[in-house]
Design a protein around this nucleic acid. Structure first.
Length: 129
RNA sequence: GAAAGCAGGCGAGGUGAUCGCAAUCGGCGUCCGCGCCGGUUGAGGAAAGUCCGGGCUCCCCAAUGGCCAGGCUUGCUGGGUAACGCCCAGUGCGGGUGACCGUGAGGAGAGUGCCACAGAAACACACCGCCGAUGGCCGGUUCGCCGGCACAGGCAAGGGUGCAAAGGUGCGGUAAGAGCGCACCAGCAGCAUCGAGAGGUGCUGGCUCGGUAAACCCCGGCUGGGAGCAAGGCCCAGGGACAACGGUUGGCCAUGACACCCGUCCCGACACAAGCGCGCCGCUCGAGGCCACCGGUAACGGUGGUCCCAGACAGAUGAUCACCCCCGCGCAAGCGGAGAACAGAACCCGGCUUACGUCCUGCUUUCACCC
RNA sequence: GCGGGCGUAGCCAAGUGGUUAAGGCACCGGAUUGUGGUUCCGGCAUUCGGGGGUUCAAGUCCCCUCGUCCGCC
């Protein structure tokens, strides 16, 4: 299951704002940045109907892995996980922006470790199942 | 049967279901922004490395032609191609028992440079050595000459050095020797002949020339230069008013022709910051794929038919389940296992290189065994 | 997309085609000392990232490749 359009972070200004002002939760494998939603910064798209929905993003730089296939796998794994989480917690997640950046070394970690740490960081940020 | 060589194909098996993503088509609805429903399509042989060649776009050389400079791993011959440093066929050389494979393969007889150590000498020679026929000296003499010395001189066979010592081996020849003569081999030149050519074969000749050009270089060949889709174009928001922007990347000649400044209203999402388009096009139909026939040894070409096959912009192509297919165990029911590896489009093609690899197919060689 | 550099011992590194590839730190052994440090002497068995080629000879020249760092739009 891939993130749908209304749950994706889109536009350069959105990412600039998250990097500058987002609150950070650090883990061993990744960094979580989160922020209250500011819908006016989103890249306008007429097909996007819910500006207040939860917005998610996953960043996997080429320092994580030099091979694009591995980066795609990591992105899909986390997208799947986050997509299910957003569905299970619609109320807590509304009006939140979340950005996960993987650190170098996470390419060798197992799927369980990555998803476990992801849930842990989300809990620190206030998102508990 | 084993080992090996070559050529070629394939590379997320098939069907269905559920939840999702991207593009597109149709229908319905619409507040004209879009929504819903249904259909279709959705990574690769290397998409990679970026090592070459192009297409396309803009800038510069005014344009066209030419010359020079510069550049080029361009370098046997003939062909293929839009082009190539690629491909095909052949020649020579090298390797392998063989099938077959490799090949940067012009010139050292234009010039310059280098050839460490060793060695006498590395475009030039005599250390050890051989001889001393001819001269010279000494002795003898039957006055013909003989013996000795190694002074002049001759030689480069043998030894030694080295990657390499100037044709090799053998016989003759000689004072000793030497292509000095001869036979064979290798090389060179000329002639004849075969071939489209690189070259092959044969005959004759005089006997002879170190290596290195992936050292500089010479010769032949090719070539306008530069930037790259973040190219570039369009729309407008806006900006500037004698400033801004452009005149960026070789020279010369035909030709009067590159300037002591020139041109134009200009720039344009670029203009101090803030703010203002996270705009549109380019963007996928192409030297295109597949099939058949014809020409060609082949690379490839021609004709006809047929198909439309990713176009994102924080960037899609994913997850789960069931059955069938395959393998192992088992009489069977059934149980267990594998479907991988290398790897992810970003303007597009043709090559090369590298990574990976299972399965399959065909042909051939060598060895062993049987008939 | 375009372009550039680097790779030599555990670390930092020098190296006009020609002996056995400088040097420093570290490490090891020995000497000196009652012991340790300092000092002195000796050592470090380095496929010069990997493969292939040219050459009599390659760390050096040529080609391919791997890793790594960086620049510009």
């Amino acid at each position: 299951m891939v993130l749908s359009r209304e749950h994706r972070l889109r536009g350069r200004f959105v990412f600039d704002r998250l990097y500058q002002r987002g609150q950070r939760q650090h883990g061993d494998l990744m960094v979580l940045r989160h922020l209250a939603a500011q819908p006016e910064l989103l890249k306008p798209d007429p097909r996007d109907h819910n500006p207040h929905s939860c917005r998610l993003g996953v960043v996997v730089s080429s320092k994580v892995s030099k091979r694009a296939v591995r980066r795609n796998q990591l992105r899909r794994l986390l997208h799947n996980h986050l997509s299910q989480l957003v569905r299970s917690l619609p109320d807590q997640a509304a009006d939140r922006w979340l950005l996960i950046s993987l650190k170098p070394g996470s390419a060798e970690a197992s799927a369980e470790a990555l998803l476990g740490e992801c849930s842990q960081l989300l809990a620190k940020a206030g998102l508990r199942p």
